[in-house]
Design a protein around this nucleic acid. Structure first.
Lengths: 67, 67
DNA sequence: GTTCAAATCACAGTTTATTGTGATTTTAGA
DNA sequence: TCTAAAATCACAATAAACTGTGATTTGAAC
């Protein structure tokens, strides 16, 4: 899973919960511009920023062996 | 999985491959100080930094529903 | 306890993420 | 098409990651 796929996953999850970007950004404690960038796969956010968004959405991540 | 667990996972994997920190940092294209911080769970690295290390170690990143 | 490599730390400079504000574009419904 | 909300963009200021260098500490082997 690459960075762009992370953004897609976040956007899909947000939409399935019927939350707008400003609401999610506020709940996650990040700026709206930052969330826009993440969902669009642009920029290079800090890990804690990603984790805050995932946590807010009831998602988590794990690490697995490739292949 | 939280940020500190990421560091532990990376360190464990690196050791199981018998690679030193300077080697891994060079292979992943990041500074040694950055890798040290990641493995120790300090700092707040950028997502691309984490992804580069994971990729170098043959690991990848998944997102799942919590619980 | 000596030795050497591995790991960690401290510092300052550079790069870049993050932010709010305000404007613009896109989307979806009436 | 109109309209309003949602999403995106542009900009400048601030905060923080990343870096290399050089020093220090830790760990394991002898």
């Amino acid at each position: 899973m690459n960075y762009q796929q992370i953004g897609r996953t976040i956007r899909d999850r947000r939409k399935s919960l019927n939350i707008t970007q400003p609401i999610l950004a506020a709940l996650a404690g990040i700026g709206i511009n930052t969330l826009v960038a993440i969902e669009r796969g642009s920029g290079n956010p800090k890990i804690e920023t990603i984790l805050a968004v995932l946590d807010t959405l009831g998602l988590e991540f794990d690490i697995t062996l490739k292949n």
